[in-house]
Design a protein around this nucleic acid. Structure first.
Length: 428
RNA sequence: GUGAGCGUAGCUCAGCUGGUGGCAGCACCGGGUUGUGGCCUCGGAGGUCGUGGGUUCAAGUCCCAUCGCUCACCCCA
């Protein structure tokens, strides 16, 4: 049996890479418009970093991390998400001393040991965006609007849901009210929900069972239990979103899988990716920097987008988003003498900035023209024995099929200049 | 971790109640044009039918196991 990639690990083949680059370039462009700077952080971190940030009791930390002992015996982990690493770097390098508000993003692979399915891999890629040092609700709206714009400029249609999860001042009281509500209905709800009543009560409201959902219609909602500060923050976030004309729906039952979220949370959803509905999600995490040993009271907010899911969506919704690459010129040489002449000429043309291809092994003209066609060459330069004898080369326009003879005599620089001009003049 | 479906060429797939794996389509290579691509035409190359057992005179086909893939649950981007 030949060796295959690991389960849940995928090769991104050359024909798909264009789509990836298109998505990344489009997102980067928008991020820069909004003042974000890229940061590149390691893929491997101390296990403790994720345990402390994501939460010991989450599924990610409990059973999905690629953790192992390195050669010194320290427990290290392939990052399951980006925020923890970026915050670690932010704290380690004291970035808050350079700018009071840091706007950072990173793009790269993440690792979670889950069963793969549509839109879910063990190595997957995220765009991870963070803003540190500001808790103004206008920022929440700006960030959500930017996430929306990234999808919009890719030509993708999704829906936006927002919620507030409160803060350490108001969430515990809500949690208690919810647990009391659930405790009174244990015999009416499913086994999973009974289990989650203890382990993660907020998640119960997310249950897919319609029977359970019937029970929860009058469950206490977090939005009715927010403290004054959180309620005001949420109201201002909503008002700011409306100023930016971003269409949203409030989902009071929306829960996030990571423990660190406070106040604003949001999800960008689609219904065309099978069971995987979220293409992007995030929220505020005002206590996280302090929790990781950074400045007390340093607020933060961020989101992540799943690149595989964007690629899938773009393939469905906007298949021809990405322009095909073309070759400027294919040089077809016939015979050893012509090939020896063409070889350095091709190199020269490439040094001049043209995208040039040639066949290195002296195949038939028919075969070389076929290669030129397949490379989507705009021009072919035919250099054969007849041409050599006359001191010429034939330049063929592959679209119009018009051919003209170009003099070969003199410095190759001269021919090169002629070709560059001819090609530039027809560049579309 | 749980459940279901599926494994035949690089890809998409035929292959009936067991009876010699398909001039199959796409892609690839070459010829038809002693030097001109796309279309056409002819030819070529490409396979341990996922793997290992079992039943049978005979297994791609039936049975068991195993590995892999996919989708779903869970969870998440």
């Amino acid at each position: 049996m030949t060796i295959q990639a690991l389960k849940g690990f995928k090769d991104i083949l050359p024909e798909e890479v264009g789509l990836w680059q298109h998505i990344e370039a489009s997102a980067r462009d928008i991020l820069h418009r909004f003042g974000f700077a890229e940061i590149r952080v390691p893929i491997l971190e101390k296990t403790e970093l994720f345990a402390r940030s994501i939460g010991e009791a989450t599924d990610i930390v409990e059973k999905e991390m690629y953790s192992f002992a390195d050669r010194n015996g320290d427990s290290v982990t392939m990052r399951p998400e980006g925020t923890a690493s970026v915050l670690r770097a932010f704290i380690e390098h004291g970035l808050q001393t350079r700018l009071p508000v840091q706007r950072l993003y990173t793009i790269g692979p993440m690792f979670r040991h889950e069963r793969p399915q549509k839109g879910r891999l063990r190595q997957f890629h995220q765009l991870s965006v963070e803003v540190l040092g500001l808790d103004h609700p206008r920022l929440d709206a700006e960030l959500i609007a930017m996430a929306w714009l990234i999808l919009e400029e890719l030509g993708l249609t999704t829906s936006l849901q927002i919620n507030s999860l409160g803060c350490p001042a108001c969430r515990p009281a809500y949690k208690e009210a919810l647990v009391n509500f659930l405790a009174a209905r244990q015999d009416l709800i499913c086994e999973d929900c009974r289990r989650r009543t203890v382990s993660n009560p907020l998640r119960v409201l997310d249950c897919k069972s319609s029977h359970c959902q019937e029970q929860y219609v009058d469950a206490p909602a977090i939005l009715d239990h927010l403290c004054l500060g959180c309620a005001d923050h949420f109201a201002q976030t909503r008002a700011s979103l409306e100023l930016l004309a971003v269409p949203y729906a409030v989902n009071p039952f929306m829960v996030r899988g990571l423990d660190y979220y406070t106040r604003t949370t949001f999800e960008l959803l689609t219904d065309t990716l099978g069971a995987q509905s979220a293409v992007g999600a995030g929220g505020r995490y005002d206590g996280l920097v302090a929790q990781l040993g950074g400045a007390k009271g340093m607020p933060g907010i961020g989101f992540a987008m799943g690149l595989e899911r964007l690629v899938l969506l773009l393939g469905q919704q906007n298949a021809d988003a990405c322009p095909e690459t073309a070759t400027d010129l294919f040089v077809a040489a016939l015979g050893e003498e012509a090939t020896v002449k063409a070889f350095p000429l091709v190199h020269l043309l490439r040094r001049k900035g043209l995208q040039v291809a040639m066949d290195l092994e002296g195949k038939s003209l028919k075969s070389q023209m076929k290669q030129a066609d397949r490379a989507k060459a705009r021009f072919a330069l035919i250099l054969g024995e007849e041409e050599l004898a006359k001191g010429e080369a034939v330049l063929r326009d592959m679209t119009s099929k018009e051919q003209q003879a170009l003099p070969l005599a003199g410095e190759p620089e001269a021919l090169c200049a002629v070709l560059v001009t001819a090609i530039a003049s027809t560049a579309q």
